[in-house]
């Protein structure tokens, strides 16, 4: 018996080593979300940020009645995968930090506004963007470079290229703006993507361009009214259902306890 238990525990510990590896992947995936695990094949990779203009709930599964957390107005959410339900509503998989861990959930994309990004810029300016082919030949700047979301964007992230950074190997596209200045696109550099302003890579002030796309307006991605499946159940009936479930669980526990006492404690005596 003792050897069996020891063997089983050892095997279980070995199995546990493989569990985290199942989620080791470059592409972000919602971790520990049973809905995603069950509908992975129906989800489409979106990889996009969305702006929130009014507090929006995030659910454990699309159409759930109880939210897991809420995103405050003014925040941006990252959506990795998108699931389209039977009513045609798009739900985005997103996550948030809770203490030391990350939890994932689903958010109704109709209530959000897509953030204009590099892919949108490349699509809108396809005729003016060229793959990098050697021009510009030089890209120098002392200190941190700024990686802008798109030419003329007000959103940028600093990164420090080290001495071995061969920027020409990482350059994707080149865009020439209306002032004649060039911008070099880096599809992937130090975990980020964006554009570097060639005349002054270290410039921290946004470059104002007439052709730059404005920030997302107050328009959500869709204007359709939420369907019945997406609307939150009225609070009263939700609370009543939860109370019923809790009472049911308590009954099961009490009956089990009584049966244990009758069958195994009293009868033993």
């Amino acid at each position: 018996m003792k050897r069996l238990l020891t063997l089983v525990l050892s095997l279980l510990l070995c199995c546990a080593l493989f569990v985290p590896a199942a989620h080791a992947d470059v592409v972000w995936e919602p971790i520990g979300n049973s809905f995603y695990d069950a509908h992975r094949d129906e989800c489409v990779y979106r990889d996009k940020a969305y702006a929130v203009f009014d507090e929006v709930p995030v659910y454990d599964a699309p159409g759930d009645s109880m939210s897991k957390w809420s995103v405050s107005a003014g925040e941006n959410v990252y959506v990795g995968f998108v699931y389209t339900d039977a009513d045609g509503v798009e739900w985005g998989a997103t996550d948030t930090r809770q203490g030391e861990d990350w939890i994932s959930g689903w958010i109704d994309l109709r209530l959000l506004s897509p953030v204009y990004d590099t892919r949108d810029f490349l699509a809108d300016h396809a005729a003016e963007v060229q793959p990098y082919a050697g021009e510009p030949a030089e890209l120098t700047g002392e200190g941190e470079w700024m990686l802008w979301s798109y030419p003329g964007s007000e959103t940028g992230y600093p990164f420090q290229p080290d001495d071995s950074f061969a920027w020409k190997d990482w350059a994707g596209y080149v865009y020439t703006d209306e002032t004649g200045a060039q911008w070099v696109n880096f599809p992937y550099v130090y975990g980020d993507e964006g554009w570097v302003y060639v005349p002054d890579p270290c410039r921290t002030e946004p470059v104002s361009l007439a052709a730059a796309t404005p920030a997302p307006t107050m328009q959500p991605a869709q204007t359709a009214q939420p369907t019945q499946s997406a609307q939150a159940t009225p609070a009263a009936s939700h609370s009543a259902a939860l109370i019923l479930i809790c009472v049911g669980v308590a009954l099961v526990v009490m009956v089990s306890a009584v049966l244990i006492v009758i069958l195994y404690v009293v009868k033993k005596k």
């Binding site: 454990d60 897991k68 203490g99 861990d101 939890i103 099961v252 526990v253 009956v255 306890a257 244990i260």
Partner: peptide, 20 residues
């Protein structure tokens, strides 16, 4: 019976308040 005693309340609480 032992599992009926412990499993439902554990699963209920961990589902309502997900936290490692």
């Amino acid at each position: 019976l032992v599992n009926l005693l412990t499993n439902p309340p554990v699963v209920l609480l961990c589902t309502l308040f997900p936290s490692p």
